[in-house]
Amino acid sequence: MTAATRGTTGTAGEPLISVRGLTKSYGTVEVLRGVDFDVAPSEVVCVIGPSGSGKSTMLKCINLLDAPTGGEISVSGVTLTDPKVDVDAVRARIGMVFQHFNLFPHKSVRANVTLALRHVRRLGRAEADALADEQLDRLGLAHLAEQRPANLSGGQQQRVAIARALAMRPEVMLFDEATSALDPELVKGVLAVMRDLASSGMTMLVVTHEIGFAREVADRVLFMDGGVIAEQGPAREVLERPRTERLRAFLSQVL
């Protein structure tokens, strides 16, 4: 499915996500001070860095959940920062998974997955239910379809959140510290889903503290510090032979 979706958008070699000169300030506080990078189709890019380095803000700027102060963001050829662009339409093609899951507590697991299918893609109830059940089944969640999120473990909730995003058939998935709020024993299951997703060819931008996951799954790693990308490159290179003192210090703290 991802390959097919991708075939219709962008030509080979063109980045799926392109970020140029991205800045973000809250009042006088500069959170992002000029961020540039690309993500190629099917590429998995992990973003690491100390808290407060701006990585989550950067991720939320990509689908404009946080409005950038300056710079340009393009996703599959559409410039989101252009005020004439229908941002909702572009967001529907960008899946996002949050640290705190953000499932809709007043809706069943199935209804969480079908909400956007019905009200954004305008599918009928039967069709949306079928797609949702199929997606839930893939993630081993079919038996929970009738449950409310509150009855689920954190790991189950996060996998439902991933199913909710995937059901929209996104071209790219953004993960915002998807495992940071989970109990340690539940982290593995969510990371396994993400790993399978990566090997299925999904384009992924993953903000994470899981250095092991980054080393194993990422094609590239960005190290953010102080609102800029302080170091980047192939995952093994960056994580095993850090060039900057800041990254060396960071890695020695988290490993």
Binding site: M1, T2, H106, S108, Q135, R138, L139, G140, H143, L144, E146, Q147, R148, N151, L152, S153, G155, Q156, R159, L166, L186, K188, G189, A192, V193, D196, L197, S200, M202
Partner: peptide, 26 residues
């Protein structure tokens, strides 16, 4: 009623994920 949901299948699922089946072919 709104908090707990309609009393359809009232039994809450076991909190332990069933074997953490995590096969994906998205």
């Amino acid at each position: 009623r709104m908090r707990t949901g309609r009393p359809r299948v009232a039994a809450p699922a076991p909190a332990v994920p069933a074997g953490e089946k995590t096969e994906v072919s998205a």
